[in-house]
Design a protein around this nucleic acid. Structure first.
Lengths: 213, 213
DNA sequence: ATCCCTTTGTGAACCGACGCACAAAGTCAG
DNA sequence: CTGACTTTGTGCGTCGGTTCACAAAGGGAT
């Protein structure tokens, strides 16, 4: 389930505050979901709750971490060391959740050789070698849109089956490869859409009511 | 609809290649969705297609842009000028789609006064003033998790009703305020989850089959 | 002018997710 | 030990979204 990371985040927050036990109601509120949904999700990974009491925070953290595969560490390569790539390389949220940035790659000879977040930037020509040698299993694409599909093809050929794509293009990949995409400007466009509808409703709303009579 | 930006992106790509007309089938492929779904989505904003021919690219770009409210320009403020905030400030994808970064704010006196992407970083104390004076209607939160809710409250009080949240917390806001959230590490965790299931299936799969006999 | 071919727009079946509401199960006080 | 209370786990009705499949509509050739 795609909500497990959300629960995990809420649980680690509770653990830090020293809370040992939590009810589905409280945890659901902390994660921003319905409590029945949360219980159903958790029941899919086994009966880890105690009726009348709730869930033991520590135990649940461990179970969800295991389910998500966060008990092993994952080597991640970031391709494209522009502004976004740099930000991702320096982002603390990855390391704290079992992800290790194992390689930075770029095509621009200007940045190859630079050290970012303690890592040497390698030329994209080394892609296949680096992936094999450093055991990379997840690749983050932060390249310009034009380059994304070509890099993606090479990454897939090198045997990687999980890609996080920040480039604003639809990547075509074999069915066995999973691509998740984050498009920052799409998120803003959706906000603008709703923002405009609010504005329309305020000015045009009453008018519409008149027209509808 | 949340898919309109996707269609728009595909359409501008086609327009750049000089394609004047496109069928729902082709456009759906370019956007990575089902063609029936695309036709239904487009029909919700009026009958802009011609049976037997398809959709006129230019016209559709205009109609979707108008529907999304991209014909006006939106002033965006970015709060939190860490690695991510900097990357967002420099990100070209915003400007090209009608979004203007109108303000950068931070609490750290070390970065206040710096110039990033041609903008002066302002202290967070000025938040309300800056929002009003520069007509900001969308705020991007790129602060640490601990600070996010407090900043969010101030932003909401200042009258902003659209927030894009990069901090890994669930923000509580009035119902009238829309929050979209992007959590980079959650995306990676979902990839790791599927990656692990693939690995489990390869090693544990055949074994399971034996056990099930 | 007519016929055939392409493509849109949509009715209707299908599917999964969501949440209510409740029974089963466990805790704790007396 | 018993009974009242709390909370999980889940059956079931509902709802929105997705997709199939087809009728309606337009274009172009003969």
């Amino acid at each position: 389930m795609a909500r497990l990371p959300l629960y995990l985040r809420a649980l680690t927050g509770l653990a830090e505050r020293g809370i040992a036990t939590v009810s589905s109601e409280d945890l659901a509120a902390a994660a921003g979901v319905n409590s029945a949904k949360l219980r159903k999700d958790l029941s899919h990974l086994g009966s880890y709750g105690t009726r009348g009491v709730g869930y033991e925070v520590e135990y649940l953290v461990y179970q969800i971490s295991r389910e998500l595969g966060l008990t092993q560490d994952w080597a991640v390569a970031i391709v494209g060391v522009g502004n976004l790539g740099r930000a991702l390389a320096n982002y603390g949220g990855f390391v704290s959740r079992g992800f290790r940035v194992a390689a930075l790659l770029d095509a621009d000879p200007e940045v190859v050789g630079d050290t970012i977040a303690g890592l040497n930037v390698v030329h994209i020509d080394e892609l296949e070698t680096v992936i094999k040698r450093r055991g990379v299993s997840i690749v983050v694409l932060a390249t310009p849109a034009q380059a994304a599909q070509a890099v993606c093809d090479r990454v897939v050929n090198a045997g990687v089956t999980s890609i996080l794509n920040f480039a604003p293009v639809v990547l075509s990949v074999p069915e066995s490869v999973e691509v998740r995409k984050v498009d920052l400007s799409i998120e803003l466009q959706i906000l603008a859409f709703h923002e405009q509808r609010k504005a329309d409703r305020e000015s045009g709303g009453p008018l519409m009511a008149v027209e509808n009579q």
